[in-house]
């Protein structure tokens, strides 16, 4: 298997976090994994992105020129990266913040930021997107993923963990 994922959004939306979580969840079952972050020069705001490559074969470069999946959390990210895809690529967009329509067949639209607001915290939109991704491409079984997320967030405030899990499930079900 080979799955090249790009996750992009504004700094502070937690795109690096869900990328890391996805890569970590895959460690148990997928032999070759790379995760590579890229930040703008700004510490807050600006575009941030990360690439996760999951493969049954050795990975040459952690940076890919095309992606099998692109997860867009904001408009700037969508504008910047949506050229790097093939006809088969899946695009998951956060329609709460990406207003320009993207015309393609393989698209999954998530009103993630609004849904997150509904759950009580706008910051958990990233977990909604992660859930949506794993629903579309179960590279890791959703059940395993939920268990893994709990482990990775261990030590954080319990209500925060529950909220993130709730967001993840919201994404998974949509």
């Amino acid at each position: 298997m080979l799955e090249r994922i790009l996750i992009t959004g504004s700094g502070g939306q937690g795109v690096i976090l869900i990328g890391k979580i996805l890569a970590t969840l895959a460690v148990k079952s997928i032999p070759h994994i790379t995760f590579f972050p890229s930040y703008g020069a700004e510490v807050r705001g600006g575009t941030s992105a990360c690439q996760v490559i999951l493969s049954s074969k050795e990975i040459a470069s952690p940076l890919s020129e095309v992606f099998d999946t692109i997860v867009c959390m904001n408009q700037e990210g969508a504008d910047q990266f949506c050229r790097q895809m093939t006809k088969q690529s899946l695009v998951i967009v956060n329609t709460s913040l990406c207003k320009k329509p993207i015309v393609r067949s393989n698209i999954l639209q998530m009103d993630a930021t609004r849904l997150a607001d509904g759950l009580g915290d706008t910051r958990v939109a990233n977990f909604i997107m992660l859930g949506a991704y794993l629903a579309a491409k179960p590279v890791v079984s959703p059940l395993q993923a939920e268990k893994g997320i709990r482990e990775l967030l261990a030590g954080k405030n319990m209500s925060l963990i529950d909220l993130n899990i709730k967001a993840f499930r919201t994404g998974l079900k949509s």
Binding site: A23, V27, I33, T34, F35, F36, P62, L63
Partner: peptide
């Protein structure tokens, strides 16, 4: 910097 910031198992 690439090997420094890249994550792998």
């Amino acid at each position: 910097g690439r090997l420094g910031q890249m994550m792998e198992p």
